[in-house]
């Protein structure tokens, strides 16, 4: 499993959803489901923190295709 702090919001959110689906299937060994639960909890917190600290970045594409900040 990849380091949570390096996941994009989408990746973290998607993994969280798949963990819930897996746990809901009820076919996971107990120790694994405890691990999954812990990972899911961390993913949820990570997503919350991404939402809290996000600030819209606005850039501009120059005629030659470079992305530069919009003044």
């Amino acid at each position: 499993m990849s380091d949570i702090n390096e996941l994009s919001f989408e990746a973290a959110y998607t993994e969280l959803e798949s963990i819930i689906t897996k746990l809901e299937s009820g076919e996971i060994p107990l120790d694994e489901s405890v691990t999954l639960f812990e990972r899911g909890r961390q993913l949820s917190e990570w997503c919350q923190s991404l939402l809290d600290k996000a600030e819209l970045r606005v850039n501009q594409l120059s005629p030659d295709g470079r992305v530069e900040p919009l003044e």
Binding site: I20, L23, S33, F37, G40, R41, S44, Q48, L51, A54
Partner: peptide, 27 residues
């Protein structure tokens, strides 16, 4: 919508706790 996402995340966390309880109870 950020607010919807926040709500969805809270729900997801609740679901996780519920599932863990269920799993233990089932076992």
């Amino acid at each position: 919508n950020r607010d919807d996402l926040r709500l969805a995340l809270r729900t997801a966390t609740d679901t996780l706790y519920g599932l863990l309880d269920d799993t233990v109870a089932h076992r």
